[in-house]
Protein backbone atom coordinates (compact mmCIF):
# COMPACT_ATOMS: atom_id res chain seq x y z
CA UNK A 1 0.00 0.00 0.00
CA UNK A 2 1.27 3.48 -0.86
CA UNK A 3 1.19 5.86 2.03
CA UNK A 4 1.08 9.60 1.54
CA UNK A 5 3.64 11.18 3.88
CA UNK A 6 2.01 12.36 7.07
CA UNK A 7 3.01 15.97 7.57
CA UNK A 8 1.57 16.18 11.04
CA UNK A 9 1.42 13.89 13.99
CA UNK A 10 -1.42 14.72 16.33
CA UNK A 11 -1.64 18.41 15.61
CA UNK A 12 -3.60 20.53 13.19
CA UNK A 13 -3.63 20.60 9.41
CA UNK A 14 -0.65 22.92 9.11
CA UNK A 15 0.15 23.53 5.44
CA UNK A 16 -2.24 20.84 4.27
CA UNK A 17 -3.77 22.51 1.25
CA UNK A 18 -7.18 21.56 -0.23
CA UNK A 19 -5.66 20.04 -3.38
CA UNK A 20 -3.49 17.72 -1.27
CA UNK A 21 -6.50 16.89 0.89
CA UNK A 22 -8.61 16.02 -2.17
CA UNK A 23 -5.85 13.81 -3.57
CA UNK A 24 -5.36 12.07 -0.21
CA UNK A 25 -9.10 11.55 0.28
CA UNK A 26 -9.49 10.03 -3.20
CA UNK A 27 -6.37 7.86 -2.83
CA UNK A 28 -7.33 6.56 0.63
CA UNK A 29 -10.91 5.84 -0.43
CA UNK A 30 -9.74 3.90 -3.50
CA UNK A 31 -7.27 1.86 -1.41
CA UNK A 32 -9.91 1.11 1.21
CA UNK A 33 -12.46 0.06 -1.43
CA UNK A 34 -9.89 -2.26 -3.00
CA UNK A 35 -9.09 -3.76 0.41
CA UNK A 36 -12.71 -4.31 1.45
CA UNK A 37 -13.94 -5.65 -1.93
CA UNK A 38 -14.57 -9.40 -1.61
CA UNK A 39 -14.66 -9.96 -5.39
CA UNK A 40 -11.73 -8.10 -6.99
CA UNK A 41 -11.85 -7.33 -10.75
CA UNK A 42 -9.02 -9.77 -11.50
CA UNK A 43 -11.02 -12.61 -9.92
CA UNK A 44 -14.01 -11.74 -12.13
CA UNK A 45 -11.71 -11.66 -15.18
CA UNK A 46 -10.45 -15.12 -14.22
CA UNK A 47 -14.05 -16.31 -13.87
CA UNK A 48 -14.74 -15.01 -17.40
CA UNK A 49 -11.90 -17.16 -18.78
CA UNK A 50 -12.94 -20.08 -16.56
CA UNK A 51 -16.56 -20.19 -17.79
CA UNK A 52 -15.51 -19.74 -21.40
CA UNK A 53 -13.00 -22.60 -21.18
CA UNK A 54 -15.27 -24.87 -19.11
CA UNK A 55 -18.59 -24.38 -20.91
CA UNK A 56 -16.98 -23.80 -24.34
CA UNK A 57 -14.81 -26.90 -23.93
CA UNK A 58 -17.83 -28.91 -22.86
CA UNK A 59 -19.71 -27.76 -25.96
CA UNK A 60 -16.77 -28.68 -28.23
CA UNK A 61 -16.64 -32.09 -26.59
CA UNK A 62 -20.36 -32.99 -26.88
CA UNK A 63 -21.55 -31.22 -30.05
CA UNK A 64 -22.66 -33.37 -32.93
CA UNK A 65 -22.80 -36.53 -30.78
CA UNK A 66 -25.86 -38.64 -31.41
CA UNK A 67 -26.84 -40.02 -29.01
CA UNK A 68 -25.58 -37.42 -26.55
CA UNK A 69 -22.71 -38.70 -24.38
CA UNK A 70 -20.53 -37.35 -21.63
CA UNK A 71 -17.41 -35.27 -22.48
CA UNK A 72 -13.86 -36.59 -22.29
CA UNK A 73 -12.21 -37.28 -18.95
CA UNK A 74 -9.40 -34.83 -19.78
CA UNK A 75 -11.83 -31.94 -20.13
CA UNK A 76 -13.56 -32.85 -16.88
CA UNK A 77 -10.17 -32.86 -15.14
CA UNK A 78 -9.40 -29.35 -16.49
CA UNK A 79 -12.83 -28.14 -15.33
CA UNK A 80 -12.31 -29.56 -11.83
CA UNK A 81 -8.91 -27.82 -11.59
CA UNK A 82 -10.47 -24.49 -12.67
CA UNK A 83 -13.33 -24.95 -10.17
CA UNK A 84 -10.78 -25.62 -7.41
CA UNK A 85 -8.78 -22.48 -8.33
CA UNK A 86 -11.98 -20.41 -8.38
CA UNK A 87 -13.09 -21.68 -4.96
CA UNK A 88 -9.59 -21.18 -3.47
CA UNK A 89 -9.19 -17.65 -4.88
CA UNK A 90 -12.72 -16.63 -3.87
CA UNK A 91 -12.22 -17.92 -0.31
CA UNK A 92 -8.90 -16.09 -0.01
CA UNK A 93 -10.43 -12.83 -1.35
CA UNK A 94 -13.36 -13.11 1.08
CA UNK A 95 -11.08 -13.71 4.06
CA UNK A 96 -8.80 -10.84 3.08
CA UNK A 97 -11.70 -8.41 2.62
CA UNK A 98 -13.37 -9.41 5.88
CA UNK A 99 -10.25 -9.53 8.09
CA UNK A 100 -10.79 -7.31 11.13
CA UNK A 101 -14.26 -6.23 9.95
CA UNK A 102 -17.30 -6.80 12.16
CA UNK A 103 -20.85 -5.49 12.33
CA UNK A 104 -24.32 -5.95 10.85
CA UNK A 105 -23.31 -5.78 7.16
CA UNK A 106 -20.53 -8.30 7.73
CA UNK A 107 -22.93 -10.67 9.53
CA UNK A 108 -25.48 -10.32 6.71
CA UNK A 109 -22.77 -11.15 4.19
CA UNK A 110 -21.80 -14.28 6.14
CA UNK A 111 -25.45 -15.36 6.35
CA UNK A 112 -25.77 -14.73 2.60
CA UNK A 113 -22.73 -16.93 1.92
CA UNK A 114 -24.26 -19.74 4.00
CA UNK A 115 -27.52 -19.48 2.00
CA UNK A 116 -25.55 -19.55 -1.26
CA UNK A 117 -23.60 -22.62 -0.16
CA UNK A 118 -26.87 -24.46 0.59
CA UNK A 119 -28.31 -23.32 -2.78
CA UNK A 120 -25.25 -24.69 -4.65
CA UNK A 121 -25.41 -28.03 -2.81
CA UNK A 122 -29.17 -28.42 -3.32
CA UNK A 123 -28.97 -27.46 -7.01
CA UNK A 124 -26.25 -30.01 -7.77
CA UNK A 125 -27.53 -32.70 -5.37
CA UNK A 126 -30.63 -32.88 -7.58
CA UNK A 127 -28.51 -34.56 -10.27
CA UNK A 128 -28.33 -37.68 -8.04
CA UNK A 129 -32.10 -38.50 -8.16
CA UNK A 130 -32.05 -37.60 -11.86
CA UNK A 131 -29.31 -40.16 -12.39
CA UNK A 132 -31.14 -42.84 -10.38
CA UNK A 133 -34.35 -42.12 -12.26
CA UNK A 134 -32.37 -42.89 -15.43
CA UNK A 135 -33.10 -39.51 -16.95
CA UNK A 136 -32.88 -39.33 -20.72
CA UNK A 137 -29.67 -38.00 -22.25
CA UNK A 138 -31.11 -34.60 -23.25
CA UNK A 139 -32.41 -34.05 -19.70
CA UNK A 140 -29.13 -35.24 -18.25
CA UNK A 141 -27.30 -32.76 -20.50
CA UNK A 142 -29.63 -29.80 -20.02
CA UNK A 143 -30.01 -29.92 -16.25
CA UNK A 144 -26.33 -29.53 -15.23
CA UNK A 145 -25.75 -26.94 -17.96
CA UNK A 146 -28.50 -24.54 -16.91
CA UNK A 147 -30.59 -25.41 -13.87
CA UNK A 148 -28.01 -25.05 -11.04
CA UNK A 149 -26.93 -21.58 -12.19
CA UNK A 150 -30.56 -20.57 -12.79
CA UNK A 151 -31.51 -21.66 -9.24
CA UNK A 152 -28.37 -20.24 -7.59
CA UNK A 153 -28.58 -17.05 -9.66
CA UNK A 154 -32.19 -16.39 -8.65
CA UNK A 155 -31.56 -17.17 -4.96
CA UNK A 156 -28.47 -14.94 -5.00
CA UNK A 157 -30.30 -12.09 -6.75
CA UNK A 158 -33.23 -12.20 -4.31
CA UNK A 159 -31.04 -12.33 -1.21
CA UNK A 160 -28.63 -9.67 -2.52
CA UNK A 161 -31.62 -7.39 -3.18
CA UNK A 162 -32.75 -7.94 0.43
CA UNK A 163 -29.29 -6.76 1.56
CA UNK A 164 -29.60 -3.82 -0.88
CA UNK A 165 -26.43 -5.03 -2.62
CA UNK A 166 -27.65 -3.89 -6.03
CA UNK A 167 -24.45 -4.64 -8.06
CA UNK A 168 -24.46 -8.25 -6.80
CA UNK A 169 -28.22 -8.51 -7.40
CA UNK A 170 -27.67 -7.30 -10.99
CA UNK A 171 -24.81 -9.71 -11.69
CA UNK A 172 -26.59 -12.76 -10.28
CA UNK A 173 -29.87 -11.91 -12.01
CA UNK A 174 -27.95 -11.65 -15.30
CA UNK A 175 -26.48 -15.12 -14.62
CA UNK A 176 -29.99 -16.55 -14.02
CA UNK A 177 -31.27 -14.94 -17.25
CA UNK A 178 -28.34 -16.33 -19.28
CA UNK A 179 -29.04 -19.80 -17.83
CA UNK A 180 -32.76 -19.54 -18.68
CA UNK A 181 -32.06 -18.41 -22.26
CA UNK A 182 -29.36 -21.09 -22.73
CA UNK A 183 -31.90 -23.83 -21.99
CA UNK A 184 -33.43 -23.11 -25.41
CA UNK A 185 -30.11 -24.00 -27.06
CA UNK A 186 -30.65 -27.74 -26.69
CA UNK A 187 -28.44 -30.32 -24.91
CA UNK A 188 -25.23 -29.27 -26.71
CA UNK A 189 -25.96 -25.65 -27.68
CA UNK A 190 -26.87 -24.77 -24.09
CA UNK A 191 -23.22 -25.18 -23.08
CA UNK A 192 -22.04 -22.73 -25.76
CA UNK A 193 -24.66 -20.11 -24.88
CA UNK A 194 -23.77 -20.50 -21.20
CA UNK A 195 -20.05 -20.08 -21.93
CA UNK A 196 -20.45 -16.93 -24.02
CA UNK A 197 -23.22 -15.43 -21.86
CA UNK A 198 -21.50 -16.02 -18.52
CA UNK A 199 -18.18 -14.78 -19.92
CA UNK A 200 -19.89 -11.51 -20.91
CA UNK A 201 -21.52 -11.18 -17.46
CA UNK A 202 -18.17 -11.80 -15.69
CA UNK A 203 -16.31 -9.30 -17.92
CA UNK A 204 -19.06 -6.73 -17.36
CA UNK A 205 -18.81 -7.24 -13.59
CA UNK A 206 -15.00 -6.94 -13.72
CA UNK A 207 -15.32 -3.64 -15.65
CA UNK A 208 -17.90 -2.36 -13.16
CA UNK A 209 -15.63 -3.26 -10.21
CA UNK A 210 -12.71 -1.39 -11.81
CA UNK A 211 -14.92 1.69 -12.30
CA UNK A 212 -16.31 1.41 -8.76
CA UNK A 213 -12.83 1.21 -7.22
CA UNK A 214 -11.29 4.00 -9.32
CA UNK A 215 -14.17 6.43 -8.86
CA UNK A 216 -12.96 9.31 -6.70
CA UNK A 217 -14.88 10.95 -3.89
CA UNK A 218 -13.91 14.54 -4.58
CA UNK A 219 -13.08 14.13 -8.27
CA UNK A 220 -15.30 11.39 -9.76
Amino acid sequence: MNHTPDTTTAGNGGNFDPQQAAALLDQTTRQARRTFTPGPPLLWAFRAVFVLVAFGGYWLSVRGRDPYSAPSGGLLAVIFVLVAINIGWSTWALKRAGAGVSGPAQRKRQAWLAVMLVAWIVAYAFTVPLYHATATHPVWALYPANAPLMIVGLVAAATAALRRDWPMAGTTLAIAIVAAVAAFGGPAGAWLIMGIGLCAVCLGTAAFKVWQQRRGVVRP
Binding site: T4, P5, G13, A21
Partner: peptide, 15 residues
Protein backbone atom coordinates in the same frame (compact mmCIF):
# COMPACT_ATOMS: atom_id res chain seq x y z
CA UNK B 1 -8.46 18.40 7.73
CA UNK B 2 -5.34 16.65 9.05
CA UNK B 3 -3.70 14.01 6.80
CA UNK B 4 -3.77 11.17 9.32
CA UNK B 5 -7.30 11.82 10.56
CA UNK B 6 -8.53 12.24 6.97
CA UNK B 7 -7.06 8.81 6.18
CA UNK B 8 -8.71 7.27 9.25
CA UNK B 9 -12.13 8.73 8.48
CA UNK B 10 -11.93 7.91 4.73
CA UNK B 11 -10.89 4.31 5.49
CA UNK B 12 -13.75 3.77 7.96
CA UNK B 13 -16.21 5.42 5.55
CA UNK B 14 -15.42 2.73 2.94
CA UNK B 15 -17.08 0.17 5.24
Amino acid sequence: HVPTRLKIVATLAAL
